[in-house]
C-alpha cells in the first residue's frame, strides 16, 4: 500500500531524511517513533504530498509521487496536530467544504455519518472555534476519513489534548483502524501507540534504525527497545 525506497530530504545543507526505506501493507497500523527533530513530520509531509523528496521512490495506493500526487491525495487522509478546520464555519460546513474538494457523492448522508462516528452530530451547527481542542481533533479525524481513504497519516495527533480527549481519540483511532484502513502514525508517546500499532519503526537523526512487529515485542519491552535503538546512533 505504501512503498518508500531510498528517500532523502534536504533543507538547504541540512539532510533531514537519509535513505529511508519503508513498506506498509494494506490494513497495517505502523507507528513511527522517534525524538523531536528525528524527521518524523518531514517523512509524513512527503507521504502526504505536501513536500517533495530530493531523492527516492514513493508509491502510495499504486500511484507514484510526485507525478501522480492528485491521485494519491484521493486515497489519503491526514490528521496533524493542527485540525486544518475553519473556525468561522460550523462542523457541518467544514465537512461539506472538504467533501466538495474530494468530489464525494451523496455528501449530505456521508457528512451526517461521519459526524455521528466522531460523536459531534449534536454540535454539527456550532462554529468550530467554539469547540474544545479535543472536539476539534475528533472533527479533524472526521475530515480525514470523510472520503474513505485507504491510507491515513497521523502526525502527533495527541499534541495538546488532555487525558480524557486522548482516551476518546484512542477509541476513535481503534474504530478507524478496524475498518481496514492502512495507518501510519508518528508519535513520541510510546505508551499510547503501544496499544494501537501493529508495527513500530524507530526513526532518529533522519534514519530508520530499528523495526519490530508488535507480536514480537510485548508492550513492556517497547521502551527498552526504543532506548536501545536511539542509543545505537
Amino acid at each position: 500500500m505504501v512503498k518508500v525506497h531510498g528517500l532523502v530530504k534536504r533543507f538547504g545543507l541540512k539532510t533531514v531524511l537519509r535513505n529511508i526505506d519503508l513498506t506498509v501493507k494494506q490494513g497495517e497500523f505502523v507507528a513511527i517513533l522517534g525524538p523531536n527533530g528525528a524527521g518524523k513530520s518531514t517523512l509524513l509531509r512527503i507521504l502526504a504530498t505536501l513536500s517533495r523528496p530530493n531523492v527516492g521512490y514513493v508509491e502510495i495506493a499504486g500511484y507514484q509521487l510526485p507525478s501522480q500526487a492528485a491521485y494519491v491525495r484521493q486515497h489519503l487522509g491526514v490528521v496533524t496536530h493542527f485540525p486544518l478546520l475553519y473556525g468561522d464555519l460550523t462542523a457541518e460546513e467544514n465537512l461539506r467544504f472538504y467533501g466538495r474538494m474530494y468530489h464525494i457523492s451523496h455528501l449530505t448522508e456521508r457528512v451526517s455519518d461521519v459526524l455521528q462516528l466522531v460523536g459531534l452530530y449534536s454540535r454539527r451547527r456550532d462554529l468550530v472555534r467554539t469547540y474544545s481542542r479535543g472536539m476539534q481533533q475528533r472533527l479533524a479525524i472526521g475530515r480525514a476519513i470523510l472520503h474513505d481513504p485507504s491510507v491515513i497519516l497521523f502526525d502527533e495527533p495527541y499534541t495538546g489534548l488532555d487525558q480524557e480527549a486522548c482516551d476518546m481519540l484512542d477509541s476513535l483511532l481503534l474504530n478507524v483502524a478496524t475498518q481496514g484502513h492502512t495507518i501510519i502514525m508518528t508519535s513520541h508517546d510510546l505508551w499510547r501507540v503501544a496499544e494501537l500499532a501493529s508495527r513500530f519503526e524507530i526513526l532518529t537523526n533522519g534514519k530508520i534504525v530499528a523495526s519490530a512487529e508488535k507480536k514480537d515485542l510485548p508492550a513492556t519491552y517497547l521502551l527498552d527497545f526504543y532506548r536501545q535503538a536511539i542509543q545505537e546512533i
Binding site: 504530498t49 505536501l50 492528485a70 494519491v72 486544518l84 475553519y86 473556525g87 474538494m101 474530494y102
Partner: peptide, 18 residues
C-alpha cells in the same frame, strides 16, 4: 493569513484537485 494561521492551507493542498 486566515489559511496559514490554522494550517488550513495544508488542508486545501491535501485535496485531490489541481
Amino acid at each position: 493569513a486566515s489559511e496559514k494561521d490554522r494550517a488550513c492551507l495544508d488542508g486545501l493542498l491535501l485535496a485531490p484537485v489541481d
